[in-house]
């Protein structure tokens, strides 16, 4: 594609997605002139890292941007390192932050030197699902069995997950409130570790993403009992001999009244960037989710693409902050 039609497409995308930003976008198109840095708010090998490197791969393969891209991992402090770094890169649209919902949730529970409003949202590219997992030979066949056992257990059953006060622990407290049970939450260094601990029987359950435990499920070490989704996942290939993701019932149908819980894969620009720069990146990301590399990644990791940008993205953040504030308040985690 020629550069001219490319920028025109970018402009068109800006017009379509950001009616409010039209005048600014019309003032001047923007495109990168220097090497681009993808700032990853997780360590190398983490979920956000794989996300960013997939996007990098897709962009490079299909020449979606004119300059080179490097990926840097700044995952210390649950990603605070990366956000603080990007916040310091005032007005530099050559840096793109790759994150989850930690952009807006981390400042609520941790004393960090940034706010979600500091960053200019680009897009949510996908959502990762959460499931309730038990050990493969656990006596609890269904979520209802598990809850019944949890209610009568003393000491409480042990629920594992990744970093404290992050998605896993939030979901755990949601389950506690919704189903009126009590767990002991044990924070590990990531879903992978929580998965192995469950396989070894050191904890009783965890709330891993599908991709974090698929190996354990196939190897008959762990087993999902329900998915935190409105309806079961789309029909796909079998994961084990007999079952696929679509065979796992929703948690709300199993007596855990949580309609939906998922984690967005998000991208942001540093503060002080312009709507034109935002429009440019929205357009790039929109192309990324069309590439076969991206679709392959989504299938492999059992996520779902729901490209969300502009007002819808802001609305998602607003709603999530509101809902989370209530939980964090009740748990006494709020610092701001």
């Amino acid at each position: 594609m020629s550069r001219r039609s490319f920028t025109r497409a970018a402009l068109a995308a800006a017009v379509l997605t950001l009616p409010g930003a039209l005048p600014a976008a019309a003032q001047g198109e923007w495109r990168p002139t220097r090497p681009i840095e993808f700032v990853v708010t997780s360590g190398a090998g983490g979920g956000t890292d794989v996300f960013a490197r997939t996007v990098q791969g897709a962009i490079t393969k299909h020449n979606l941007v004119p300059t080179s891209i490097i990926v840097t991992n700044k995952g210390a402090g649950s990603g605070a390192e990366g956000f603080v770094y990007a916040r310091g890169a005032q007005g530099d649209a050559h840096k793109v932050v790759f994150a989850t919902n930690n952009t807006w949730l981390l400042p609520m529970v941790s004393r960090v030197a940034f706010k979600a409003e500091d960053f200019r949202p680009v897009a949510i590219l996908a959502f990762d699902e959460f499931m309730l997992w038990v050990k493969y030979d656990s006596p609890h066949r269904t979520a209802a069995d598990f809850l019944a056992a949890a209610r009568s257990a003393n000491p409480p059953l042990k629920m594992g997950g990744s970093q404290p006060k992050d998605t896993d622990q939030t979901l755990t407290s949601l389950i506690q409130r919704a189903a009126n049970v009590r767990f002991t939450y044990v924070p590990f260094r990531g879903g992978g570790e929580a998965g192995t601990q469950l396989a070894g029987g050191h904890i009783d359950a965890n709330t891993n993403n599908p991709s974090e435990s698929i190996g354990g499920w196939r190897g008959s070490q762990v087993r999902p009992v329900c998915v935190f989704r409105r309806e079961p996942m789309a029909r796909g290939e079998l994961v084990t001999q007999t079952q696929g993701w679509h065979d796992i019932p929703t948690c709300s149908s199993q007596g855990i009244p949580i309609e939906e819980f998922s984690m967005p894969r998000t991208t942001f620009l540093p503060p002080g960037t312009t709507p034109a720069q935002q429009a440019y990146w929205v357009d790039v990301m929109r192309r990324v989710v069309e590439t076969p590399e991206w679709k392959d990644y989504i299938t492999r990791t059992s996520q779902s693409t729901r490209f969300t940008t502009g007002d819808a993205f802001s609305e998602h953040i607003r709603k999530d902050v509101e809902a989370s504030r209530e939980i964090f308040q009740a748990e006494g985690w709020l610092v701001n």
Partner: peptide, 15 residues
Amino acid sequence: LGGLMIWGLNPGPML
């Protein structure tokens, strides 16, 4: 491990 994920392999006994 991140690489395994990208290549479409899942670490686990079944590997």
